[in-house]
Amino acid sequence: MDHRTSDEAELVRRVQAGDEAAFREIVERYQSKVYSIIYGILRNHNDAEDIAQQVFAKVYFSIPNFDFRSSLLTWIYKITVNECYDYLRKRKVRKLVYESDLPEDDDQRVQLNEPARDQSPPIDDVVARRDLALKLLAKLPPEERDLLLLKEVEGHSVEELAEMTGINENTIKVKLFRARQKLLKAAQRMLRTAPGVVTP
């Protein structure tokens, strides 16, 4: 797919020409998407707001260099995930499982002394699994991490990924395979060094 001809591309060109209204349109079109991606990773509204602002500021300053090789959303997605990982690196990857660190909906359940909702695993397990997923993904190069997240978290198919990134399907499959192998090795290493850790 040619990313130069979509209406998204036209919007980008207008921003590149200095049209602030076009930038506003981009923010309004993608703000919920970006906010949800960040919230999905960090589960904290204050962090999500702060990082989402940071993402769009970065989009504003970097859009002159946008080269239409991928879709605008894919490009913004990459910036978003990178910002989340920068933030986690600065925080030295948060420690589990303090109540204050619980996601807000789980936190409320703990405060009200409610049992976990039907069929859902215990809160500690949920938080620990998310934490483990973040730690393992941190071991991957950004490109492979983004692809895995787009595949597993965003639920895109290989064909969609090829279209979004401008990379052919076979290469996407190879990259995903490599990413999965690295993830598996990282998980095995982690289990060897910290046997108490939650298993995938």
Partner: peptide, 14 residues
Amino acid sequence: LLIRSLRYSQEIAP
């Protein structure tokens, strides 16, 4: 499945 634990089904607006 572990990575899918990062999935958040609802879209939230700031």
